[in-house]
Structures are given as C-alpha cells and as structure tokens.
Design a protein around this nucleic acid. Sequence first.
DNA 1: AGAGAAATTTGAACGTCGTTCAAGAATTCA
DNA 2: TGAATTCTTGAACGACGTTCAAATTTCTCT
Lengths: 204, 204
Amino acid sequence: MRAALIAAAERTIATSGLPALKARDLAREVGCALGAIYNVFPNLDALVFEVNGRTLAAFEEFLARAERKERERTGEDGKGGQSGQGSQLVRLALVYVEFALANRLRWRALFEHRMNVSEQEEVPAWYSGEQARLFTLVEKPLRALRPDMDEKEAQIFARTLFSGVHGIVSLGLDAKLMALPVSVLKEQVARFVEVVEAGLRTRK
Amino acid sequence: MRAALIAAAERTIATSGLPALKARDLAREVGCALGAIYNVFPNLDALVFEVNGRTLAAFEEFLARAERKERERTGEDGKGGQSGQGSQLVRLALVYVEFALANRLRWRALFEHRMNVSEQEEVPAWYSGEQARLFTLVEKPLRALRPDMDEKEAQIFARTLFSGVHGIVSLGLDAKLMALPVSVLKEQVARFVEVVEAGLRTRK
DNA sequence: AGAGAAATTTGAACGTCGTTCAAGAATTCA
DNA sequence: TGAATTCTTGAACGACGTTCAAATTTCTCT
C-alpha cells in the first residue's frame, strides 16, 4: 500500500511534475479510497518527501554508475591523481547536469517542494542526512584539490560550490528566464567549474 | 484600482510571502468586489508578474544607491580600475545578498512563482527585458576583468555567474537544507566570487 | 462457530482556493 | 427621460487537501 502510493506518486511526478500530484488521482491510480492515503501518510507532503528521498538515492546510484564507467574508461588507475583531462569536480558537476536533464521533473520536485502546513513541521531527519551526503560528494574532490583547507572550511565550501552549480542548472532550465539549450548549459557548467578550480589552485 | 491592487499584493507578499496571496483577502484589503480583480488582471499570475517587476526595479534602485555610496566612500575615482580591496564583482554579489536578505519574501517570490495556467501563457516581454538588464549588470565588471572575451561569451558567462551566486543565496537560505547564518552566507558568497575572479584572471 | 470488541477502511462532506458570469447598477447618448 | 451600453458585483462552480462518522473487516474469547 505504502509502496504502491509512493510508486504512483513517483510516476506522476516523473511524467507530469509535482504540481500534478493530486490526492484523488493517486487514490484512483492505486485503487484505494481517498481517505486511505491518510492512513499511511499524515499528508501529501510526507509522501512527497518520500519520493524526493528516492530521487536523491537515484542520483547517488546514477553517480556511482557514472564513476564506475569512468573508472573502466581510464583503466582503473586507483590512486594516480587526475589522470584524464577532465577534473573530478568538473566530471561531478556534469553528472549532476546529466541527472537533472534525464530526470527533469523529479529533480525539479526536489527544489520546488515547499511545505504547506502552517507553522511548518520538521524536515524528516533521514532526508537531511541524505542531503548532507550529497555535499560530502563534493567535499572529497575539493579536499583533494586543496588539502590545506581545514575540515569545517571544506565542508561549507563544498555546499557553496554545490549550490553554485545547482543555481546554474536551475536557472539555466527555467522557462521564465528563457531556458538555455542543453549543449550550452553543459558547456557553461564545465567552463564555470573549471574557472572555480583554477581559482582554487591560486590558493586563497 | 490597478495601483491599489498591486500595492496590496506587494504588501502581502512582502510580509507573508507569495503563498499567502489570496484573491479574497486582496479584495477585502482594497475594498472592492472579488470579481473586480478580474476586470483589471486576467488572473492572479499577471498581478504577481507586476509585483515581481517592481521587485526587480527595487533591486536596481537598491544597487544604484549602493554604488552611489561606494563611489563617495572611495572619493569618486571615476575610472581608476579596481581601487579598494573589494572587486566590483564581489561588491555586486554582496549587494545581491544584501537585497535578498532585506527583502526576503519579495525576493523569494521572484523565483518560487510558477505560472499556473495550463499550456502556459507567455512571460510578459517587459518582464524578460527587466531580467535581461540584471545580467547586463554582471556583464560590465566581467568584461572589465576579461576584455578578451567576445560579447556573446561574456553575455552568457555573466548569466552563468549570476545563476551561481543566486544558487548559493537561494540554497543558503533554504529551510529544507538548514539555512546558513547570515554572516556565513555573506562570507561564502564573497569567498566564492573571489575564487571565480582568481580563476578568470588565469585566462581560460 | 458465534458474538462481541477492536482496528481498519471508506467516501461523503467541510473549508478554501481561483475563476466565471448572469444579474444588477451606473453611465452614456438621443 | 428612456433606451442602449458599459461597468461592477458577489453567488456559484469546480477542484483541491483533509477529516471523520459510519461501514466493514479482523481479532479475541467462550
């Protein structure tokens, strides 16, 4: 039941977007009563959190797959530093773009979802944890580039860098700002991260 | 009437946020009939566009004021290149942060507003123009830093840079990601733009 | 097996929302 | 002034998330 609801909600979000998620449609789709949804979830927000959690997990999966591919492409040099021409950070950012493009509506739901209920309920702890792991992914290559940064500094700058790339993708695909062609978007993200990297290499 | 509606909507958005904007409250506030709103605007989206347009204008005003202050602080050296320690780009980014902080809900409305109506109506042309001007503001100091970039390249990279800073501010203030303290946010934006600048100075 | 208690499921109903439109009020023109 | 035209109004519509009394199912004990 719970699983069926999450699956149906995921399908709807993936094919029609978060705003298309309606309690009645959901009930019809899984063949249950309208009220049944509220036996499983306190409200639709909780269900959306669940779907968004899967999306975060799907991204980690996507990233792992990309890394595996990359490793076998470069002939699995486990520790040789930057071997190919593309830096780790650039590759990571491009994987992010790739995922956003391949899962546009699911990805968008991650950020356009605002909690409805008055005097907001908490963000689920497991969700925050999942998010935190994403920043960690940026942290690792960042620390490789700048081992002199202390932990706190690297953590927060990783978040900053992630947010920057996210902003570029987010506004780059925004219809209200006239969406960029995909090729241009990828190019800009790559160019941008390269610039940041060059800047980081100049030490402070 | 039109003006009163816009003013009331602006007040509501500024003090309670875009989601609190309700047709009935609006009618009560300006003392008109519910339907009267729809004699002036085709729907609430159009009204929101109007308010968001004012917010963009308010930002330009805010920026102009900040630049005036800066110019009199440094003793109006009209053309001397970078005189103080703060670069133009960093100052611009920090003004952006300052504005977002001082006008949080109005600023947030700029980006959380999605058009409701099915098979979306056009974004008003004047609104797109106003947005384009914002990117131009980034373009100028960027071209000062990198006169070798051709126009097209500078235009698009200005948008990218703007989007990056926007992402940092946007996610930095997001409750779902655990909002950053204001001081940290400002510091990160400054640090980030400095890094980008340093990267840009290394030429490609 | 059966009767009664407990838990679960149900969908009609509630309150709120943006938007519409027939009817009423105001204005214009002859 | 009387008819034609325009503007204004708020009750009504359909869609929404959510609730809850009633119906149904499941469990428990004799």
